[in-house]
């Protein structure tokens, strides 16, 4: 049942997202949209000496994509750029820690794809 998807920690991050907003002087930024649902997410980072010192995301999305964005940005804040580049789909699934249906996988992975876009230039 999909109600298992709407666990407390997911709903909590949807209502109170982490690192949501805009950075004034981002070093790099990238937007990625999910053509299936039209949701779009923008990720901005400040990178100094090959380290991500600050990160923000913005955009409208479902509970799954918003929670995934909060968890991912929490994870890579203060991470080395090279380490962040190595994050995979499996890392995201472990972070969100809910059974995810095939149809909603795209939602969970949208922030990761946006992050990959940001780091391509970093």
């Amino acid at each position: 049942m999909s109600l298992e998807m709407y666990k407390e920690h997911i709903l909590d991050l949807y209502k109170n997202p982490h690192n949501k907003g805009n950075l004034e002087n981002p070093t790099y930024e990238f937007s990625k949209n999910n053509p299936l649902c039209g949701d779009e997410i923008k990720i901005q980072i400040i990178a100094k000496n090959n380290k991500i010192t600050n990160i923000k995301f913005n955009g409208i999305g479902c509970a799954i994509s918003q929670a995934s964005a909060s968890l991912l940005t929490d994870k890579i804040k203060n991470m080395k750029v090279e380490s962040a580049k190595k994050l995979t789909k499996e890392d995201i699934l472990e972070m969100i820690h809910i059974p995810i249906s095939h149809a909603r996988l795209k939602c969970a992975l949208l922030p990761l794809e946006a992050m990959k876009g940001v780091l391509e230039n970093a």
Binding site: M1, C37, G38
Partner: peptide
């Protein structure tokens, strides 16, 4: 509540609805 989250939970109650931009992104 995002429309896709509504559709997902309604699905549990055996109600299939359509959710999203309905091929009409400019209107959204």
């Amino acid at each position: 509540v995002h429309p896709h989250d509504v559709a997902q939970i309604l699905n549990d109650n055996k109600i299939c609805i359509r959710a999203g931009h309905h091929c009409c992104m400019p209107l959204m």
